[in-house]
Design a protein around this nucleic acid. Structure first.
Length: 1009
RNA sequence: GCGGGUGUGGUGAAAUUGGUAGACACGCUAGACUUAGGAUCUAGUGCUUCACGGCAUGGGGGUUCGAGUCCCUUCACCCGCACCA
């Protein structure tokens, strides 16, 4: 009886769906366990084999936990707002909601392409998702709550004293009674004001002031503007100076935008990492991104060049201990004080430098670090301790965006300052005892400070503390901690995102009442910006708010709205809005009154295991932590970290195939290469990989290639090709071809290839130069899997051919989950064979046949060894090794011809997380009427694992020489005696007495001669 | 430059606390069976040597009776950050 995987899998997938086998209960006597996958963006291209890798691992873990008696929450949904659907909408006019739905549920797109649909593809793999909890971020019932959370952020400020976010009302209360004198908040620069002043201000003025405190706030900021995408981008959406999506150039632009005051959480986001079971590399990336540095801010007063008003330059330094080494100061060219302080003599030079710097992009400035440039302002600052006058320079190695945009330059301790000083001939003071600085700065923090007044003879680390104390005492500055993390821009000038629940009265934003949410995306005719450059929502007819009647109303474009009617926000939220809290919504996906009910979030708590890509380190994973902490501060959720443990699955790379073509050819005489004389070949000449190599290496003469000669003669009739000494010299090009045109031996199916090319290029003009055996071999190369490289392997094809259980086991068998690995289908037959072998344990020629006989010790040992290993491996998230363990077990049981229920039944439970369909089928055939999902994972019994004998490897001087089987309970002394008495030992002892004999019972014997 | 990771047969890999390196698969070789459609079974397969043996976990050194595993050093590749004061 054959293993009919297609039938079996369909049957059980249907059963699970109908019986809601994987529905999680919102309360249970069982302990809870929350296993989450990073939800996908449903693209039209569908899933390739790389996507389910993490889902399979998490599914195995979820199923394993159910067998261990846990109430498991294992949901899936879609991050369905995003750029591709919108770009497609711009091209085709198709509403993004429609394409998104098709991409998820399957269908046909506007160009007639059949879209399989994410859901259908996922279902075929047999995941144990609780689909009743599905969320889509673009669903108004979902983004209603994203908007609600935005409102909470708007209505909150960060109180540094309590170190958490609080309702804005508590702040307003303080303003009313005390002004802002005692307010200790994370905020923009705000001048002091009294309660009286506050109370005297107009509503509009008060609102504007509050904007400086709100956790989400509106401000004119320099943003990364991407003209090609027509939107601003967050820092984490830019890689190497271009947009992460599409690789378009990005420029700086001053725009009024919503931002998130994530900087308020910098310290907590940093320290919170300590308790997380995440990979060190992700934690490091986040630490780096937050970029904490501890030091001091110090004010240097400006010595007025012409007796004008006195100003000060504030600098930040991590090395206040080196303050006596300061011999000049450097400002960023954009620093606001530059124009003020520059002396008339230096003005021309400084302005020229400023101009040159402004023309360079941020990227150029960063890449051109070797070139030392700068200009002297002619102004001086007063050293706060020595009273010396120090020159003030400008230089583009100082960044306007970091710290205060100014540095105190200590050339002896900082290489960049040293380079600058050396280049411009500025004095270099040495304040380090016994450290030479003639060749470069001494940047280590281990020197003894000297020539530094009250810091003399202190080691650097102590001097730092002393210097800060002294700086604070003299009132010239204070200890300060600086973060590299910037507030996150939250507006996008796009259509396909969450609308803000915001309308504007005289440019002042007001929130839509919560009972009116969600504010749904309006219909627009075009998804492009308006003619006057407003975001696409500017095209919407119905996009005004009637304050009195609390509803969206229509105001014709260009007309002034009637009184009480105001324009709604035209920006939408960025992609990370919906994904920052989705893990909470799964707990209570249909709740219409709250984003999540308290008792549900109290039960489910945070995610126990999160599996997903490492590429979201500074985006999603940071923002989700931020929102979680915020919601925790306001008392909505009981925890302040979203994901306790995370595993980042490696990328599955594609294995591209290439056909080589000869594009040019020439000859060389007698092995001496000559210049190619390119002749265009009207016929496409494809050449097999190995042949090509031989020709390129001049290993074979052209006369071995009659086909080639024929063509050469055809286009070069005057040349004599009969001279056997002539070699062919060719120039080759290669093109990607679909991987389904080749077999496992990298051999091209020529007919299929011609048909594909005809379809693609409309030509049938390929001529093949094959290997001697007639095969045409293609080149292979590992690359990223993508449609354009024709190297995409979909899970659907493999499920069709081998079944979901095989695919699941094989993807795990490939290697450790975290590792990147190229996709290669060659090994899949081995895993498929294992499942067939398992099937045969339960069947003979006449059908299902399992006996109730008592198993032998050997059979029990094989089973219990497997139970133990699989349990241990899954628990340490080693998903590849259990597959081997299953194979070993099935191989052993096959050799023992074991078909005993007592062995096979527990084995099925152990296997069920990996191969749930075949396990269910055989489980049912054994007479069970309930799904195997909630069976009890068997416990291994050590009694079956102990051996009466142990085969000792006997080593001489550490080299293993022979095996010796001895009773397992034999004493060390007896073992030593046995080993030395053994005749094989005599050979290695060569008559000498051993110096030492090491016996480790149950392990090894080593004789030292 | 800084931080993190990876390096083991022809290939994917295993070796959890230092104890038989290469389990389990793929591929390959030979054979059996079947008149073949990617079926099944048996044997072999790290390199080297006729053999005894020798050599092998990127390279070099060390600790140890014993090192893929621990320490030092060095190389290669991948990822992240990068004038961050």
């Amino acid at each position: 009886m054959q293993y009919q995987f297609n039938e079996i899998e369909k049957k059980w997938q249907k059963y699970w769906e109908e019986n809601k086998t994987y529905a999680a209960k919102d309360n249970s006597v069982k302990p809870k366990y929350y296993v989450l996958d990073m939800f996908p963006y449903p693209s039209g291209a569908g899933l390739h084999v790389g996507h389910p890798l993490g889902y399979i691992a998490s599914d195995i873990f979820a199923r394993y936990k159910r067998l261990q008696g846990y109430n498991v929450l294992h949901p899936m949904g879609y991050d369905s707002f995003g750029l591709p659907a919108e770009q497609y909408a711009i091209q085709t006019g198709q509403h993004p909601a429609v394409t998104t739905k098709v991409n998820i549920e399957g269908g046909v797109d506007k160009q007639g392409n059949v879209i399989p649909g994410y859901r259908n593809q996922l279902d075929k793999i047999g995941f144990s998702f609780d689909w009743d909890r599905e969320v889509r971020t673009s669903d108004p019932n979902y983004y209603k709550w994203t908007q609600w959370i935005f409102k909470q952020l708007f209505n909150s400020w960060y109180n540094k004293t309590t170190d958490k976010a609080e309702k804005i009302d508590t702040l307003i209360e303080q303003f009313k009674t005390n002004g802002n004198a005692n307010v200790n908040a994370v905020c923009a620069d705000v001048a002091h004001f009294s309660a009286g002043e506050w109370n005297s201000w107009s509503e509009e003025e008060q609102q504007q002031l509050l904007m400086n405190y709100r956790i989400t706030f509106l401000s004119d900021t320099w943003v990364n503007w991407c003209p090609a995408l027509g939107t601003v981008l967050a820092n984490d959406e830019i890689k190497d100076g271009v947009s992460e999506r599409g690789g378009h150039p990005v420029e700086q632009k001053l725009m009024r935008q919503w931002s998130m005051r994530i900087t308020a959480y910098a310290e907590r986001l940093l320290s919170g990492l300590e308790g997380l079971d995440w990979s060190e590399s992700i934690k490091d990336i986040q630490r780096n991104w937050i970029g904490k540095s501890v030091g001091a801010s110090v004010r240097f007063t400006i010595s007025p060049p012409s007796g004008e008003s006195e100003g000060a330059i504030e600098v930040f330094t991590t090395r206040p201990d080196t303050i006596f080494g300061v011999s000049f100061m450097v400002l960023a060219p954009e620093h606001p004080l530059v124009n003020e302080i520059t002396t008339p003599e230096q003005k021309a030079e400084v302005e020229a430098y400023q101009k040159a710097a402004s023309l360079k992009s941020e990227r150029d400035r960063q890449s051109d670090i070797k070139n030392i440039t700068g200009a002297n302002t002619g102004a001086f600052a007063i050293h706060p301790f020595t009273g010396d006058k120090v020159q003030i320079w400008i230089g583009d190695y100082v960044l306007a965006s970091y710290g205060t945009g100014a540095v105190m330059a200590v050339p002896c301790g900082d290489q960049r300052d040293w380079d600058f000083a050396t280049h411009f001939g500025i004095e270099i003071k040495n304040i380090f005892k016994d450290k030479g600085i003639s060749e470069g700065a001494y940047a280590e923090k281990d020197a003894i400070i000297t020539n530094s007044d009250f810091l003399n003879d202190l080691p650097a680390k102590e001097a730092i503390k002393k210097a800060i104390t002294e700086i604070e005492k003299r009132g010239i500055g204070k200890g300060k901690t600086q973060y590299r993390l910037r507030d996150a821009v939250f507006s996008r000038q796009r259509y396909w995102g969450e609308p803000f629940p915001v309308y504007y009265k005289n440019e002042v934003p007001y929130l839509i009442p919560s009972e009116c949410l969600p504010i749904e995306l309006p219909e627009v005719e075009k998804y492009l910006p308006t003619e006057d450059g407003k975001p696409p929502l500017g095209n919407a007819k119905n996009w005004h708010w009637d304050e009195k009647n609390k509803k969206i109303v229509s105001v014709p474009v260009g007309q002034k709205p009637p009184s009480g009617v105001w324009g709604l926000e035209l920006n939408t939220m960025p992609g990370w809005a919906g994904s920052s809290w989705y893990f909470l919504r799964y707990m209570d996906p249909t709740n219409d009154n709250e984003f999540v009910a308290k008792e549900k979030v109290n039960y489910w708590q945070n995610v126990d295991l999160y599996i997903g890509g490492a590429e979201h380190a500074t985006g999603h994973l940071l923002y989700a932590r931020f929102w979680t902490k915020f919601l925790h501060d306001l008392g909505y959720i009981p925890f302040d970290e979203p994901f306790k443990k995370m595993i980042n699955q490696g990328m599955i790379q594609g294995n591209s195939a290439f056909v080589n073509y000869v594009s040019e050819w020439g000859t060389d005489e007698g092995g001496i290469p000559i210049e190619l004389e390119p002749i265009e070949l009207p016929e496409l000449l494809a050449i097999s990989s190995n042949k090509l190599k031989k020709i390129l290496d001049f290993q074979e003469k052209y006369d071995n290639y009659p086909d080639l000669i024929k063509i050469l003669k055809k286009y070069n009739p005057t040349k004599n090709f009969d001279d056997k000494k002539l070699n062919i010299k060719i120039k080759e090009i290669s093109h990607h071809i679909p991987i389904n045109l080749i077999n496992v031996g990298n051999e091209l199916d020529k007919e299929k290839f011609i048909a594909w090319r005809k379809n693609w290029a409309g030509k049938e003009d390929v001529h093949f130069i094959c290997e001697d055996d007639g095969a045409f071999i293609v080149d292979r190369e590992v690359e990223k899997m993508s449609k354009s490289k024709y190297n995409v392997q979909t899970p659907d094809e493999l499920v069709e051919k081998f079944g979901a259980d095989t695919l699941r086991c094989y993807e795990m068998f490939l290697g450790p989950l975290e590792q990147h690995k190229p996709w290669d289908t060659q090994g899949i037959t081995g895993v498929h064979g294992f499942l067939k072998k398992l099937w045969r344990l339960f069947h003979d020629d006449n059908g299902f046949n399992v006996s109730d006989e008592t198993p032998s010790n050997e059979e029990l040992k094989s089973l219990h060894k497997t139970i133990k290993k699989v349990k241990e491996d899954i628990e340490r998230f080693s998903f590849n090794t259990p597959v081997s363990a299953f194979m070993i077990c099935v191989n052993e049981l096959t050799a023992l011809k074991c078909n005993k229920r007592e062995i096979l039944e527990p084995l099925l439970i152990v296997l069920a997380p990996y191969a749930p369909h075949i396990a269910e089928e055989l489980w049912a055939k054994l007479g069970n009427t309930e799904s195997i999902t909630y069976a009890v994972f068997p416990k291994h019994n050590d009694a079956y694992l102990v051996e009466s004998n142990h085969k000792y490897p006997v080593s001489f001087n550490g080299k293993m020489r022979f095996m010796l089987e001895l009773p397992a309970d034999m004493s060390k002394e007896a073992i030593e005696k046995e080993v030395l008495a053994n005749e094989q030992s005599q050979k290695y002892l060569e008559g000498k007495t051993p110096k030492k004999v090491i016996v480790i019972p149950q392990k090894i014997v080593n004789v030292v001669v």
